[in-house]
Write a protein that binds this DNA or RNA. Structure first.
Lengths: 150, 150
DNA sequence: CACTTGATCAAGTATACCTGATTATCAGGG
DNA sequence: CCCTGATAATCAGGTATACTTGATCAAGTG
């Protein structure tokens, strides 16, 4: 983004971006470091997949992308052993994408990593500071997303 | 990133990311909307270029990329009329990348857009809330960047 | 004079998507 | 009951972004 134009040394948006990229990369690093290789784009699958299995087309809609693009992500995750395609018993055209045990482990590693980062934020800001940060972000997201008419 | 793994509905990192992308896109939109077309990657130049002109190699180092890649960005900005290459009087190998008047206007539009967004944040969070958000982010960036030993 | 530095030409890589076309299957109307 | 049209997946190829490495050449430096 154009977040870091000069003479505007530290604006809020730029700080948000820095904080996000600093902490966000640690999530991927943490999960990969725990022995679960993956690409950032794979989270579009992990974030949505249901325990009972999800259809490719449903995942694609939810991630706002084409079924073809989602199919590629699922191909990669299948090769990594995180998901498998099973025939949908209710529709022979469809397949259900389901997490394998290893896929569940990968998600668990992701959650553990995130919790570690949240604890670290607690240490830096204090529990109160962290709660306040979350409150402010929630308020910002709620209002900036809706009435952006000014 | 893997920010949005399930059962972790709203973690802090994910909120930071959402806030950043929500507001960050508005910066590019604002500048482009003001009549200054550009790509997000161009900010790597605008953020660094000095009023007296900067060398390509210096810009590349500062943006942590190769001189070739930076050269391409400068090519594009030159074609858009934001910068020009002038021979460096102190070294005939080098050229100084300098902002044109239109380049200065573009930066001014960026600053104006950012200030508009900052005012909007003031409206949503109140001046005190905004100040508190910035304080928390600063603290987070300072400490998370340095001792990440824990 | 060898070596380094500054810029640039040319081509390649990785990521994250897209459109188009094909095939199998399903759901509703005549 | 079959034909039409929509839907599910997938094969194949394309596009945009943001870089990279390699090679060349002029100009400065010890």
């Amino acid at each position: 983004m154009a977040q870091d134009l000069p003479e505007q040394a530290r604006n809020t948006v730029s700080m948000l971006g820095q904080a996000y990229s600093l902490l966000g990369f640690q999530i991927v690093d943490g999960v990969v470091g725990a022995g679960y290789p993956q690409k950032p784009s794979h989270s579009a699958v992990f974030a949505q997949i249901s325990p009972e299995g999800s259809r490719l087309s449903a995942l694609a809609r939810g991630a706002n992308m084409t079924p073809q693009a989602m199919g590629e992500l699922v191909d990669e995750l299948e090769e990594l052993g995180y998901v498998e395609r099973r025939p949908d018993p209710t529709d022979r055209r469809a397949k259900l994408i389901m997490l394998t045990p290893r896929g569940h482990d990968c998600i668990a590693a992701g959650i553990a990593t995130i919790q570690g980062i949240e604890r670290r934020i607690d240490q830096i800001l204090g529990a109160d500071g962290h709660a306040e940060l979350r409150r402010l972000l929630t308020e910002l997201l709620t209002n900036a997303a809706t009435d952006w008419s000014n």
